[in-house]
């Protein structure tokens, strides 16, 4: 299981034929995040977690997946967002960040959405407070009826690697 070197992006190429961008929406802490589907390699039931002493706070530890040691990251902590009620670890998504795979701890996978480029509000047009890992936000209709729209915080996988090493 090796990470690929493909370019994964939420920013469509001008003139590309892609009209929509598939995005996996996951909930962690009190927010919902979106990862480009092309970067998500796998979604797992959480395996046993081994903590790594003296590692930064946003590292939950390491897990073993088919013989590989994968680092598990907590997004809310990484993005310095306050978490009101912490759920037990529901799922792990394996994200290809370029040179390796990183595990992201999530509560649950909400849905896979097809995003139109005009649904995305890019970070550059928003306040500068947003973390370097965030591409922007998008508003998507929720999968289950009656729960209105959801706001997705769109994560840039490539930036994750750079920021974590």
């Amino acid at each position: 299981m090796t990470a690929g070197a493909q370019r994964v992006t939420l920013i469509p190429d001008p003139g590309s034929e892609e009209v929509t961008i598939p995005v996996v929406a996951v909930s962690a802490g009190s927010e919902t995040y979106g990862f480009p589907l092309s970067a998500v390699r796998e979604i797992l039931m959480p395996p046993p977690l081994t903590e790594v002493p003296r590692s930064a706070e946003h590292f939950l530890g390491v897990i073993a997946v088919r013989g590989e040691i994968i680092t598990l990251v907590d997004l809310p902590t990484l993005l310095k967002l306050e978490v009101l009620d912490r759920q037990p670890l529901g799922r792990v998504i394996l994200v290809d960040v370029g040179d390796e795979l990183i595990g992201v701890a999530v509560d649950r996978v909400v849905q896979v959405s097809q995003l139109q480029p005009d649904q995305i509000e890019y970070a550059s047009s928003m306040s500068a407070d947003l973390s370097e890992y965030v591409v922007g936000v998008a508003r998507v209709p929720a999968a289950s009826s009656g729960s209105g729209d959801q706001m997705l915080i769109l994560i840039d996988p490539g930036a994750l690697l750079g920021g974590l090493t």
């Binding site: 081994t50 002493p53 003296r54 590292f59 073993a64 390796e100 690697l161």
Partner: peptide, 15 residues
């Protein structure tokens, strides 16, 4: 090896 993200943590050769 622990991978690039954890390589800066001191004292561990891997898992």
């Amino acid at each position: 090896s622990l991978g690039a993200t954890l390589s800066s943590v001191r004292g561990f050769a891997g898992a």
